[in-house]
Computed example of a mutant assay.
Amino acid sequence: MREQDYRRLLDQRAWQPERVAEAAAARRRRPLRNAREQLLIIAADHPARGALGAAGHPMAMRSRADLLDRLMTALARPGVDGVLATPDIVEDLLLLGALDDKIVIGSMNRGGVHGSVFEFDDRFTAYDAPTIAAMGLDGGKMLCRIALEDSATAATLASCGQAVTDLARHGLMAMVEPFWSRRQDGVVRHDLSPEAVIHAISVGQGLGATSARTWLKIPVVPEMERVVESTTLPVLLLGGDSGQDAGEMYDSWRKALRLPGVRGLVVGRALLYPPDGDVGAAVDTALGLLEGGVPDLVQGGAS
Protein backbone atom coordinates (compact mmCIF):
# COMPACT_ATOMS: atom_id res chain seq x y z
CA MET A 1 0.00 0.00 0.00
CA ARG A 2 1.48 3.31 -1.07
CA GLU A 3 1.84 6.12 1.47
CA GLN A 4 -0.43 8.36 -0.62
CA ASP A 5 -3.15 5.71 -0.59
CA TYR A 6 -2.91 5.46 3.18
CA ARG A 7 -3.10 9.25 3.55
CA ARG A 8 -6.11 9.38 1.25
CA LEU A 9 -7.79 6.65 3.31
CA LEU A 10 -7.28 8.66 6.50
CA ASP A 11 -8.74 11.78 4.89
CA GLN A 12 -11.77 9.94 3.52
CA ARG A 13 -12.39 8.35 6.89
CA ALA A 14 -12.42 11.80 8.52
CA TRP A 15 -14.16 13.99 5.95
CA GLN A 16 -15.99 11.76 3.46
CA PRO A 17 -17.80 8.98 5.34
CA GLU A 18 -20.35 8.75 2.52
CA ARG A 19 -17.59 7.28 0.34
CA VAL A 20 -18.00 3.92 2.12
CA ALA A 21 -21.55 3.39 0.83
CA GLU A 22 -20.57 4.74 -2.58
CA ALA A 23 -17.65 2.32 -2.86
CA ALA A 24 -19.84 -0.61 -1.78
CA ALA A 25 -22.46 0.27 -4.40
CA ALA A 26 -19.82 0.58 -7.13
CA ARG A 27 -17.97 -2.65 -6.28
CA ARG A 28 -17.89 -5.21 -9.09
CA ARG A 29 -19.30 -8.47 -7.74
CA ARG A 30 -18.60 -12.01 -8.89
CA PRO A 31 -20.25 -15.42 -8.49
CA LEU A 32 -19.35 -17.49 -5.45
CA ARG A 33 -18.24 -20.40 -7.61
CA ASN A 34 -14.95 -20.35 -9.49
CA ALA A 35 -13.45 -22.59 -12.18
CA ARG A 36 -11.56 -24.81 -9.71
CA GLU A 37 -14.63 -25.09 -7.40
CA GLN A 38 -12.52 -24.51 -4.30
CA LEU A 39 -12.14 -21.09 -2.70
CA LEU A 40 -9.30 -19.27 -0.97
CA ILE A 41 -10.68 -16.65 1.42
CA ILE A 42 -8.32 -14.45 3.45
CA ALA A 43 -9.56 -13.96 7.04
CA ALA A 44 -8.98 -10.72 8.93
CA ASP A 45 -11.55 -10.56 11.71
CA HIS A 46 -9.33 -11.40 14.70
CA PRO A 47 -8.53 -7.81 15.79
CA ALA A 48 -12.19 -6.96 16.49
CA ARG A 49 -12.20 -9.67 19.18
CA GLY A 50 -9.00 -8.32 20.69
CA ALA A 51 -6.92 -11.23 19.35
CA LEU A 52 -3.87 -9.43 17.92
CA GLY A 53 -1.29 -12.19 18.17
CA ALA A 54 0.25 -14.05 15.23
CA ALA A 55 3.32 -16.24 14.70
CA GLY A 56 4.23 -16.04 18.38
CA HIS A 57 4.07 -12.23 18.57
CA PRO A 58 1.24 -11.07 20.87
CA MET A 59 0.86 -7.66 19.16
CA ALA A 60 1.60 -8.67 15.57
CA MET A 61 -1.64 -7.17 14.25
CA ARG A 62 -1.42 -3.87 16.14
CA SER A 63 -0.72 -1.71 13.04
CA ARG A 64 -3.74 -1.23 10.81
CA ALA A 65 -1.57 0.16 7.99
CA ASP A 66 0.64 -2.94 8.11
CA LEU A 67 -2.38 -5.28 8.21
CA LEU A 68 -3.98 -3.51 5.24
CA ASP A 69 -0.72 -3.72 3.31
CA ARG A 70 -0.56 -7.47 3.93
CA LEU A 71 -4.22 -7.90 2.99
CA MET A 72 -3.80 -5.98 -0.25
CA THR A 73 -0.73 -8.06 -1.12
CA ALA A 74 -2.74 -11.26 -0.53
CA LEU A 75 -5.84 -10.09 -2.38
CA ALA A 76 -3.77 -9.03 -5.38
CA ARG A 77 -2.43 -12.57 -5.94
CA PRO A 78 -4.19 -14.20 -8.94
CA GLY A 79 -6.55 -16.90 -7.70
CA VAL A 80 -7.41 -15.41 -4.30
CA ASP A 81 -11.19 -15.36 -4.14
CA GLY A 82 -11.99 -12.93 -1.36
CA VAL A 83 -11.86 -11.76 2.22
CA LEU A 84 -13.60 -12.36 5.54
CA ALA A 85 -13.54 -9.33 7.84
CA THR A 86 -15.40 -6.99 10.16
CA PRO A 87 -16.97 -3.73 8.90
CA ASP A 88 -13.96 -1.56 9.75
CA ILE A 89 -11.57 -3.65 7.65
CA VAL A 90 -14.05 -4.28 4.82
CA GLU A 91 -14.66 -0.54 4.57
CA ASP A 92 -10.94 0.26 4.54
CA LEU A 93 -10.49 -2.21 1.68
CA LEU A 94 -13.50 -0.78 -0.16
CA LEU A 95 -12.04 2.72 0.06
CA LEU A 96 -8.69 1.39 -1.17
CA GLY A 97 -10.39 -0.23 -4.18
CA ALA A 98 -9.21 -3.74 -3.27
CA LEU A 99 -12.51 -5.65 -3.36
CA ASP A 100 -13.63 -5.58 -6.99
CA ASP A 101 -14.34 -9.10 -8.30
CA LYS A 102 -13.81 -10.54 -4.82
CA ILE A 103 -16.11 -12.47 -2.50
CA VAL A 104 -16.68 -10.48 0.70
CA ILE A 105 -17.92 -12.24 3.85
CA GLY A 106 -18.87 -10.03 6.80
CA SER A 107 -17.89 -11.19 10.29
CA MET A 108 -20.87 -10.87 12.63
CA ASN A 109 -20.28 -11.84 16.28
CA ARG A 110 -17.15 -10.38 17.87
CA GLY A 111 -18.55 -9.78 21.36
CA GLY A 112 -16.73 -12.71 22.94
CA VAL A 113 -13.56 -10.71 23.49
CA HIS A 114 -10.44 -12.86 23.71
CA GLY A 115 -9.51 -13.64 27.32
CA SER A 116 -12.61 -12.05 28.85
CA VAL A 117 -14.83 -13.58 31.56
CA PHE A 118 -17.74 -13.25 29.08
CA GLU A 119 -15.95 -14.88 26.13
CA PHE A 120 -18.65 -17.52 25.62
CA ASP A 121 -21.34 -14.82 25.55
CA ASP A 122 -20.40 -14.18 21.94
CA ARG A 123 -22.75 -11.37 21.02
CA PHE A 124 -23.36 -10.04 17.53
CA THR A 125 -21.57 -6.70 17.68
CA ALA A 126 -20.47 -6.34 14.05
CA TYR A 127 -22.42 -7.05 10.84
CA ASP A 128 -26.07 -8.04 10.77
CA ALA A 129 -27.84 -9.71 7.85
CA PRO A 130 -29.72 -6.62 6.58
CA THR A 131 -26.49 -4.59 6.43
CA ILE A 132 -24.61 -7.40 4.68
CA ALA A 133 -27.38 -7.47 2.07
CA ALA A 134 -27.56 -3.68 1.75
CA MET A 135 -23.77 -3.41 1.30
CA GLY A 136 -23.80 -6.00 -1.46
CA LEU A 137 -21.63 -8.47 0.45
CA ASP A 138 -21.79 -12.19 -0.22
CA GLY A 139 -22.46 -13.68 3.19
CA GLY A 140 -21.92 -13.55 6.94
CA LYS A 141 -19.67 -15.54 9.24
CA MET A 142 -20.33 -16.44 12.86
CA LEU A 143 -18.16 -18.06 15.51
CA CYS A 144 -20.11 -20.65 17.51
CA ARG A 145 -18.21 -21.96 20.54
CA ILE A 146 -20.15 -24.59 22.45
CA ALA A 147 -19.24 -24.99 26.13
CA LEU A 148 -21.38 -27.51 27.97
CA GLU A 149 -20.52 -26.06 31.39
CA ASP A 150 -21.14 -22.41 30.46
CA SER A 151 -24.75 -21.23 30.32
CA ALA A 152 -23.82 -18.33 28.00
CA THR A 153 -23.60 -20.91 25.22
CA ALA A 154 -27.39 -21.05 25.00
CA ALA A 155 -27.65 -17.38 24.01
CA THR A 156 -24.83 -17.74 21.49
CA LEU A 157 -26.55 -20.74 19.88
CA ALA A 158 -29.84 -18.86 19.65
CA SER A 159 -28.15 -15.80 18.12
CA CYS A 160 -26.27 -17.90 15.58
CA GLY A 161 -29.45 -19.74 14.65
CA GLN A 162 -31.26 -16.45 14.07
CA ALA A 163 -28.37 -15.13 11.96
CA VAL A 164 -28.42 -18.24 9.77
CA THR A 165 -32.15 -17.76 9.23
CA ASP A 166 -31.80 -14.04 8.48
CA LEU A 167 -28.96 -14.55 5.99
CA ALA A 168 -30.89 -17.28 4.18
CA ARG A 169 -33.89 -14.96 3.83
CA HIS A 170 -31.61 -12.55 1.97
CA GLY A 171 -30.21 -15.36 -0.20
CA LEU A 172 -26.77 -15.10 1.40
CA MET A 173 -24.20 -17.61 2.63
CA ALA A 174 -24.05 -18.27 6.38
CA MET A 175 -20.53 -19.38 7.32
CA VAL A 176 -20.73 -21.14 10.68
CA GLU A 177 -17.52 -21.84 12.61
CA PRO A 178 -18.42 -24.34 15.38
CA PHE A 179 -16.10 -25.46 18.18
CA TRP A 180 -16.55 -27.80 21.14
CA SER A 181 -14.89 -25.67 23.81
CA ARG A 182 -14.29 -25.30 27.53
CA ARG A 183 -12.55 -22.97 29.93
CA GLN A 184 -9.33 -24.43 31.31
CA ASP A 185 -7.22 -22.52 33.84
CA GLY A 186 -9.18 -19.41 32.95
CA VAL A 187 -8.52 -19.72 29.19
CA VAL A 188 -10.97 -20.83 26.52
CA ARG A 189 -9.63 -23.96 24.81
CA HIS A 190 -11.03 -25.80 21.79
CA ASP A 191 -11.21 -29.59 21.86
CA LEU A 192 -9.67 -30.55 18.51
CA SER A 193 -10.18 -34.29 18.80
CA PRO A 194 -12.14 -35.80 15.88
CA GLU A 195 -15.01 -36.68 18.19
CA ALA A 196 -15.30 -33.12 19.52
CA VAL A 197 -15.18 -31.56 16.05
CA ILE A 198 -17.89 -33.98 14.89
CA HIS A 199 -20.02 -32.97 17.90
CA ALA A 200 -19.52 -29.28 17.04
CA ILE A 201 -20.41 -29.86 13.38
CA SER A 202 -23.55 -31.75 14.39
CA VAL A 203 -24.79 -28.81 16.45
CA GLY A 204 -23.61 -26.11 14.06
CA GLN A 205 -25.22 -27.55 10.94
CA GLY A 206 -28.58 -27.72 12.70
CA LEU A 207 -28.76 -24.00 13.46
CA GLY A 208 -31.40 -21.84 11.80
CA ALA A 209 -34.71 -22.43 10.07
CA THR A 210 -32.91 -23.72 6.97
CA SER A 211 -29.43 -25.01 6.20
CA ALA A 212 -29.80 -24.41 2.45
CA ARG A 213 -27.17 -21.64 2.45
CA THR A 214 -25.03 -22.77 5.40
CA TRP A 215 -21.33 -23.48 4.93
CA LEU A 216 -19.11 -24.81 7.71
CA LYS A 217 -15.66 -23.49 8.62
CA ILE A 218 -13.81 -26.18 10.55
CA PRO A 219 -10.23 -26.86 11.71
CA VAL A 220 -7.96 -29.46 10.15
CA VAL A 221 -7.61 -32.24 12.74
CA PRO A 222 -6.60 -35.91 12.75
CA GLU A 223 -8.94 -38.35 10.99
CA MET A 224 -10.42 -35.68 8.74
CA GLU A 225 -12.12 -38.34 6.60
CA ARG A 226 -14.29 -39.25 9.57
CA VAL A 227 -14.87 -35.60 10.45
CA VAL A 228 -16.00 -34.57 6.97
CA GLU A 229 -18.35 -37.56 6.79
CA SER A 230 -20.41 -35.94 9.57
CA THR A 231 -21.97 -33.36 7.21
CA THR A 232 -23.30 -32.90 3.70
CA LEU A 233 -22.85 -29.11 3.91
CA PRO A 234 -19.98 -27.37 2.09
CA VAL A 235 -16.84 -27.38 4.22
CA LEU A 236 -14.14 -24.69 4.31
CA LEU A 237 -10.94 -25.47 6.16
CA LEU A 238 -9.77 -23.13 8.91
CA GLY A 239 -6.11 -22.29 8.48
CA GLY A 240 -5.28 -21.13 12.00
CA ASP A 241 -2.06 -19.43 13.10
CA SER A 242 1.39 -20.11 11.66
CA GLY A 243 2.83 -21.43 14.93
CA GLN A 244 3.11 -25.05 13.78
CA ASP A 245 5.73 -26.40 11.37
CA ALA A 246 4.91 -24.94 7.95
CA GLY A 247 5.55 -28.18 6.07
CA GLU A 248 3.25 -30.15 8.36
CA MET A 249 0.58 -27.43 8.14
CA TYR A 250 0.57 -27.31 4.34
CA ASP A 251 0.63 -31.10 4.09
CA SER A 252 -2.41 -31.39 6.38
CA TRP A 253 -4.26 -28.83 4.24
CA ARG A 254 -3.32 -30.66 1.04
CA LYS A 255 -4.70 -33.97 2.29
CA ALA A 256 -7.92 -32.45 3.67
CA LEU A 257 -8.58 -30.49 0.46
CA ARG A 258 -8.88 -33.76 -1.45
CA LEU A 259 -11.83 -34.97 0.65
CA PRO A 260 -15.37 -34.90 -0.78
CA GLY A 261 -17.34 -31.80 0.21
CA VAL A 262 -14.30 -29.68 1.09
CA ARG A 263 -14.70 -26.43 -0.86
CA GLY A 264 -11.54 -24.54 0.03
CA LEU A 265 -9.57 -22.65 2.65
CA VAL A 266 -10.29 -19.71 4.94
CA VAL A 267 -6.89 -18.60 6.22
CA GLY A 268 -5.78 -15.46 7.98
CA ARG A 269 -2.71 -15.23 10.16
CA ALA A 270 -0.92 -18.25 8.67
CA LEU A 271 -0.76 -16.48 5.30
CA LEU A 272 -0.70 -12.84 6.40
CA TYR A 273 2.05 -13.36 9.00
CA PRO A 274 4.21 -16.24 7.71
CA PRO A 275 7.48 -16.94 9.55
CA ASP A 276 9.62 -15.55 6.70
CA GLY A 277 7.39 -12.49 6.22
CA ASP A 278 6.73 -13.23 2.52
CA VAL A 279 2.94 -12.90 2.25
CA GLY A 280 2.87 -13.37 -1.53
CA ALA A 281 4.83 -16.63 -1.37
CA ALA A 282 2.67 -18.01 1.44
CA VAL A 283 -0.51 -17.21 -0.50
CA ASP A 284 0.93 -18.78 -3.66
CA THR A 285 1.71 -21.94 -1.72
CA ALA A 286 -1.90 -22.16 -0.53
CA LEU A 287 -3.12 -21.55 -4.08
CA GLY A 288 -0.85 -24.36 -5.28
CA LEU A 289 -2.56 -26.73 -2.85
CA LEU A 290 -5.96 -25.74 -4.22
CA GLU A 291 -4.76 -26.33 -7.77
CA GLY A 292 -3.66 -29.84 -6.79
CA GLY A 293 0.05 -29.12 -6.84
CA VAL A 294 2.55 -30.09 -4.16
CA PRO A 295 4.86 -27.11 -3.55
CA ASP A 296 8.52 -27.65 -2.69
CA LEU A 297 7.77 -26.46 0.85
CA VAL A 298 5.44 -29.41 1.40
CA GLN A 299 7.71 -31.94 -0.29
CA GLY A 300 10.75 -30.86 1.69
CA GLY A 301 8.95 -30.32 5.00
CA ALA A 302 10.71 -26.98 5.47
CA SER A 303 9.63 -24.73 8.30
Results as ranks from 00 to 15, higher is better:
Ser252Tyr: 07
Val235Ile: 14
Gly239Asn: 10
Val228Leu: 01
Tyr250Leu: 15
Glu248Lys: 14
Gly240Arg: 09
Thr231Ser: 03
Gly239His: 13
Glu229Lys: 08
Asp245Gln: 12
Leu236Ala: 05
Gly247Gln: 03
Lys255Pro: 01
Val228Gly: 01
Gly239Asp: 10
Pro234Thr: 04
Val227Met: 01
Gly243Leu: 15
Arg254Gln: 09
Val221Trp: 08
Val228Asn: 01
Val235Tyr: 10
Arg226Thr: 11
Trp253Gly: 00
Ala246Leu: 13
Arg254His: 14
Gly243Ser: 15
Ser252Glu: 12
Ser252Arg: 14
Pro234Leu: 08
Asp245Lys: 13
Glu229Met: 10
Thr232Phe: 07
Val227Gln: 00
Ala246Ser: 08
Leu237Trp: 12
Val221Met: 10
Glu229His: 07
Arg226Phe: 05
Ala246Gly: 04
Met249Gln: 14
Tyr250Trp: 14
Pro222Cys: 05
Thr231Lys: 00
Tyr250Gln: 08
Glu248Gln: 15
Gly240Trp: 07
Met249His: 12
Leu237His: 12
Ser230Leu: 02
Glu225Val: 13
Pro234Tyr: 06
Asp245Leu: 05
Val221Gln: 12
Asp241Ala: 05
Asp241Gln: 10
Asp251Gly: 05
Val221His: 13
Asp245Cys: 07
Thr231Val: 02
Ala246Gln: 14
Thr231Gln: 02
Met249Glu: 08
Pro222Val: 09
Glu225Leu: 09
Asp245Trp: 03
Asp241Lys: 06
Arg226Asp: 04
